[in-house]
Design a protein around this nucleic acid. Structure first.
Lengths: 187, 187
DNA sequence: ATAATATCTAAACAATCGTTTAGTTTGGTT
DNA sequence: AACCAAACTAAACGATTGTTTAGATATTAT
């Protein structure tokens, strides 16, 4: 019937994701995306509809990458130790130094204003809640804990995770390690 | 000699600061600044030189506001309890809910990329180090602690503070409170 | 009152933003 | 081999970006 696409969408989206991850949403322009993705503006719009569309797909791509770590957590034995391992896995996942890339999710959450795109906001809150639930499930061991103190622990850990992800942009690995150790010291 | 300025620079900068705080650096345009500051572009450039100049002054303005809390911490008695109070003071200072304003410093740190303005980056790292030193001084009580474990505690607390400030954009007050309590539970 | 001078308004600057359109090239189907 | 439709290139779109300039206005000192 017709000509064949010269690129694979999942491949060019990964490149776009890395650009957004490095520079944020606003700073990243269509011109930069063209260059990094290696395809023309026309093709970008044909495949993803808009800059916002590219970004939403990039968020999905990022989530998919994190999903590996989350699956590992879900499949490991219940208890805080597994969550602590997840924290370290995350650090390993997003190699960091001063003003490194950090985490695309928290970067975005901290960049956007109140009147930002609703769909983007939903992705962020949904994902955060999802991880919180996984933490909660991991904490759910038969022995102990009332429901309220379980929720409190989950709240503590999801905010600690969010904070670590944010902080991974500015702080050195040794400092971040120190943070994780203290976080789990007396849990 | 000449005409008198129709505005007070410190007053219009505070308005600019609130705009940056709410929307971030990139999203905030000169047009928005004109409207919010209530003065013409010409006047903005006459007083502050550039958009970047307005932003740098806005950061100074924000820091000055935080300085009240920091002075209180420095003047209160040494120990973790005073730092915990500072955490709560900060929460009170930046009233928060889902996608609230959070903290201008951490918002900026999470928004900018590696090749952002060097002067801005310096303000962020300098301020972070400054707060870390205040924490360290507050932890320095005669009784205890090797220098290395003192540094580790300071690292832990400054990252916890950074994380709390970031998280204050997405999480509810009750969750943030839960985070603070757990952070200081066994310190 | 007049002259001097800093501050104002308002328009324009080139550059870039995200997006669209017109025209050419390509490749599979008949 | 001829045709058709999808994917390409490249140019242009209007709008907005940050910044500058020219000219009118206002205030102070003489």
């Amino acid at each position: 019937m017709a000509r064949k696409k010269a690129y694979i969408e999942s491949e060019v989206i990964e490149k776009a994701m890395n650009l957004f991850w490095r520079n944020g949403y606003e700073t990243t322009s269509m011109q930069m995306l063209e260059k990094e993705m290696g395809i023309n503006k026309f093709s970008i719009y044909a495949s993803f509809g808009s800059k916002n569309g590219v970004f939403l797909q990039s968020l999905e791509c990022y989530k998919a990458k994190l999903n590996g770590l989350l699956t590992k957590l879900k499949e490991s034995e219940k208890g805080v130790t597994s969550i602590k391992t997840y924290f370290y896995d995350f650090l390993e996942f997003s190699k960091n130094n001063e003003f490194g890339k950090g985490c695309l999710i928290t970067n975005t959450a901290n960049e956007i204003g109140e009147d930002a795109d609703a769909e983007i906001k939903k992705v962020l809150t949904d994902f955060t809640n999802e991880v919180r639930d996984i933490f909660k499930e991991s904490l759910q061991i038969e022995s102990s804990l009332s429901n309220t103190s379980l929720n409190q622990k989950a709240d503590y850990l999801i905010i600690a995770m969010f904070g670590l992800a944010s902080a991974s942009r500015m702080f050195r690995p040794a400092q971040l390690k120190s943070y994780i150790e203290n976080t789990f010291d007396n849990l």
